[in-house]
Design a protein around this nucleic acid. Structure first.
Length: 328
DNA sequence: AATGTATGCAACCGCCTCCAG
DNA sequence: GCTGGAGGCGGTTGCATACAT
């Protein structure tokens, strides 16, 4: 039994929105709000559109404070870092980028950032995973031909290694913490151990918990951002993280792996539990992927570190029930 | 100038989750 | 506990434009 359509598709206009439609929708919402019922809204607003279409139009285009145009370097970094951490949870990523919508970010990733990353991964990388990723190299040693994700600032501590044993300090990109316009720096909690932490997940109760969300910086397409909340105890010492960064200046190249040094989360995502299999097979890091593109490279990168993992302190809600990401 | 190809973006589709009844 | 409607989300498509030949 299929479910009933959300609207009468025969009497619903599709395709690009006209200025008149935009105006109608905006005027109506300005006066009455969404009323909490998108399905009924188009009729009330005098629009021959599906409620979902109205919602999308409003959230992605008409909503106030929507930012269009070029993504900044900071935004690039945030997107890349979050993608490495949580995958294609665009709404969550959008929540960290004020004014950006999940659709925007998704498009930006698919059309630009992904290609940048592919550019940064030379063909020589497209081979079976190396048994060992080198420690982060100084920028001068990075011979990558492409400055992926606008590596204007560092995401790593020069002395960092993937063992995660040599640096007690944060793996939080210091520049991100310093430069990001978001107010959610606690998002990136120190995850030093994550870099090497690959172990079947088991609950850790006596560690701090953090969940994304609840920030006014929300820009997810639903505009609600109520999926996320923060645990205050995990107050992050930005200054400490900053100092720990060791200072790789802007405009210096950083290897791909450094960009994704937070990727242990994804790593864990793959092994947390049985349901993670779905995530693996859903195409994001598909094992059978023919396209040895950046996803595969990222995946390889993740896999490369699985063997040296020692502990897990990141829990991802793979069921996508609340878009929650939890650190332990 | 005409045609083909690549790119970017808005919008749609369909599945999933939530929640009220 | 079950059911169905609505909202939310990620993947995909289609079109307009830019660029190359």
């Amino acid at each position: 039994m299929g479910r009933a359509p959300c609207c009468d598709k025969a009497n619903v206009k599709k395709g690009p929105w006209s200025p008149e439609e935009d105006s109608k929708l905006k005027d109506y919402i300005d006066k009455h709000g969404t009323g909490g019922n998108w399905i009924a809204l188009p009729q009330k607003a005098g629009l021959k559109r599906c409620g979902k279409s109205c919602r999308l139009r409003w959230l992605n285009y008409l909503r106030p404070n929507i930012k269009h145009g070029e993504f900044s370097d900071d935004e690039d970094r945030i997107i890349c870092s979050l993608f490495a951490s949580i995958g294609s949870r665009w709404s969550i990523i959008a929540a960290q980028l004020p004014g950006r919508t999940d659709n925007d970010i998704k498009n930006y990733w698919n059309t630009k950032l992904k290609k940048k990353l592919m550019g940064v991964v030379p063909s020589s990388h497209r081979k079976p995973p190396q048994p060992h990723f080198p420690s982060f190299q100084t920028p001068s040693s990075a011979s990558l031909p492409y400055r992926s994700c606008n590596y204007n600032t560092t995401y790593y501590t020069p002395n960092r290694s993937f063992t995660g044993l040599d640096q007690p300090t944060s793996s939080v990109p210091s520049s991100f913490l310093n430069n990001s316009t978001t107010t959610t720096t606690t998002l990136f909690q120190p995850q030093e151990s994550l870099l090497g932490s690959m172990q079947p997940y088991h609950p850790v109760k006596d560690h701090l918990l953090i969940m994304f969300g609840g920030e006014p910086s929300c820009s997810s397409s639903d505009g609600s951002c109520n999926q996320i909340s923060y645990v205050k105890e995990m107050e992050y010492d930005q200054h400490g993280a900053n100092n720990a960064s060791g200072g790789v200046g802007r405009n210096e190249q950083v290897p791909l792996e450094s960009y994704f040094f937070n990727n242990a989360e994804e790593n864990q995502k793959l092994i947390l539990n049985g349901s993670s299999t779905a995530a693996v097979s859903n195409g994001l890091w598909g094992e059978t992927s023919i396209d040895y593109g950046v996803d595969q490279d990222i995946k390889q990168f993740v896999n490369n570190h699985s063997s040296s993992s020692s502990s897990s302190n990141f829990l991802f809600d793979e069921n996508k029930t609340q878009g929650k990401v939890m650190y332990f």
